[in-house]
């Protein structure tokens, strides 16, 4: 059966782009694309994935294609869905046309948790982290509010301004202001623990681990660029906190 190779390449690129936009590891993205290609008789495919773009070549006669990746967030649900589709395709449960349509579905109408639930989760996580790091029960409301507000501001500003570092910087400043005020008015004792707990939802934990993971797997371009992104984000948070503390 001679499959429609152009559609195969298109599907591989779409799957790779969706995965990288959702924060998957580079080696897993390359692996998924290659598996999809091999299952459709493109056994000599080559993929080169970086956090900002994907180069994919099907075989000698097909043109090599490039897609740009502009936005990167963390969306584990999307990774699971794409993984599931590629798995079904590799086992021959669905054809390449069905796979492409399903991938398009994932791209266009994928459900995420509502914004307020995410903010509530960030607030609860901040409170839990405060206690894990040895804070007092009386400080929990402060961390709850500071963590929720910080996450909400960072998320909204990132959507508005498209500059992640500015959003994280402002959010960290706000968290520190709330923590300082609460300590000044006697709602908290240790400002350090409140701040550490409340900035946890902003910390680029996934990026840091993925960066080192990619470096160890030999993906130096991805590892270094993800590492740079993570350090810049961490620096933005640190600068925001430091600015308020030094006033």
């Amino acid at each position: 059966m001679a499959a429609d190779y152009e559609l195969v390449v298109e599907s591989c690129l779409l799957a790779g782009r969706l995965m990288m936009e959702s924060g998957a590891e580079t080696y897993r993205t390359e692996d998924t694309m290659d598996r999809m290609a091999v299952s459709q008789e493109l056994t000599q495919s080559q993929s080169f994935v970086t956090p900002t773009g994907i180069i994919f070549s099907g075989n000698k006669s097909l043109p090599t294609r490039l897609v740009r990746i502009n936005a990167r967030t963390t969306d584990l649900g999307k990774i699971a869905l794409v993984n599931n589709i590629s798995r079904k395709l590799a086992f021959g449960d669905i054809t390449i046309e069905e796979a492409y349509n399903e991938l398009k579905q994932v791209e266009n109408n994928h459900e995420t948790f509502p914004f307020w639930i995410k903010v509530a989760a960030a607030a609860i996580a901040s409170g839990a982290f405060l206690l894990l790091f040895g804070g007092r029960i009386m400080e929990v409301p402060t961390a709850f509010i500071a963590g929720g507000v910080g996450y909400a501001i960072a998320d909204r500003l990132e959507v508005r301004t498209r500059v992640k570092f500015f959003a994280e910087f402002l959010a960290a400043m706000l968290v520190t202001i709330i923590a300082t005020l609460s300590v000044a008015y006697g709602f908290g004792m240790e400002i350090d623990k409140i701040i550490i707990g409340s900035v946890m939802p902003l910390v680029p934990g996934l990026l840091i681990t993925n960066a080192v993971r990619d470096l160890m797997a030999g993906h130096f371009v991805s590892g270094l660029s993800k590492g740079a992104e993570a350090s810049l984000t961490a620096f933005a948070i640190g600068a925001g906190v430091a600015l308020i503390l030094s006033l």
């Binding site: 969306d75 995410k118 996580a125």
Partner: peptide, 15 residues
Amino acid sequence: LSFIAATAFGVIFNA
């Protein structure tokens, strides 16, 4: 506490 924190992060990352 760590169960709550990890689950909350699962929600934030849209698991």
